[in-house]
Write a protein that binds this DNA or RNA. Structure first.
Lengths: 186, 186
DNA sequence: CTGAGAATGTGACATGATGTCGCGTGACAT
DNA sequence: ATGTCACGCGACATCATGTCACATTCTCAG
């Protein structure tokens, strides 16, 4: 299922993964390796550039929020090094402004976390004007997405419910109800 | 301040304004004319294409939400007609998904209403971005997150509302109502 | 060209969810 | 001690949602 038949079986395209989240990198790099990529990982822009300068990768997944310079400058540099590198931006702090910048700087797609490996591979294939994705993958439901997002922000706020509610622009009472309503749901 | 000294004084670059909001068109076209553009207006994609085919404009301002086909197809067609046309997308229903598409299809910038004429002119001047922009944003609000997710799926479904509602497991009526609301800013 | 099936826009209405206020409690710093 | 802040919970008016119904318009194969 996960084999890529478009390429010769023994050829693994190089992929640079730049993200400061260690566990996320582990999980994602394993998933991408399983899908046929030769993955190298960097946790900040400088390290990523070091790798890319020696051998510009064919694919790149870059997070925007990293210690030091933002992932945007990495996108720019990667494009400068090799304009054929297919770059996908993957961020937990999505905004229209950074999305526009990323695309203008050479990224071919802009995804928001949580995103699984399949979405990313799908993004690599995507071309402009053709949002014809595989209908197979069901998009996660609104409720599920909301839950993930809440959990993430809640973690950032050290489980401070009041602070989380403020950052999310929702009423504390509502957040309380949402939290206790589904301790676990697919 | 609003004079354009880069061009001969009697030369007015052509600008196509595509938006279905009549009063908005009046106001904006007046403002742009005052700033030295030769403005022509269209209220839907078909009319805009008719004008553009005869004489591809140098600049274009296109709204996304118009009766009939989306402004995205206009962006695509305009770029096909003349890749030098500087297109700015201007919409009151902004989303990351459409922003990415618009840029990939050839727009040079993506603005959200309300935007005044100065912002638009500014956008026309913009070149490839500066990657030094701030990226550390507050997380999206719950409402905003929901909006972005809906827009993404909607694009995948080629703006088919019924199909989108099915994929999201929500009632079509509910989706309609959500789409009519303006997206929350943060 | 034409009809079946699908998509869309819209209204109405019962029900469930949300926003909001308030109260009491405990933790912590001043 | 006293103010501030976070928390949980009750109550209630209001808003959003799910659901059904109906009239158009679109799409596309026959």
């Amino acid at each position: 299922m996960s084999e890529n038949n478009d390429e010769p079986l023994d050829y693994r395209p190089s992929l640079l993964l730049a993200d400061d989240d260690l566990v996320f990198c582990q999980v994602l790099s394993a998933a991408l390796t399983k899908r046929g990529f030769m993955v190298s990982v960097a946790h900040h822009v400088e390290a990523a550039l070091h790798l890319a300068t020696q051998d510009p990768p064919e694919y790149a997944v870059v997070d925007l929020k990293m210690p030091g310079p933002s992932g945007l400058v990495l996108v720019e540099k990667l494009t400068a090094l090799d304009s054929h590198t297919r770059i996908v931006v993957l961020t937990g702090y999505a905004s229209i402004a950074t999305a526009v910048e990323a695309i203008k700087l050479g990224a071919i797609h802009y995804l928001t976390k949580p995103a699984d490996a399949d979405e990313i591979v799908q993004a690599f294939r995507s071309t402009a004007g053709d949002p014809a994705m595989s209908v197979a993958d069901a998009p996660l439901s609104i409720d599920r997405l909301e839950w993930e997002h809440i959990q993430k922000v809640l973690l950032e706020c050290q489980s401070n419910i009041s602070a989380t509610a403020r950052r999310l622009g929702m009423h504390r009472r509502t957040l309380q109800r949402k939290l206790q309503k589904r301790p676990a749901h697919r």
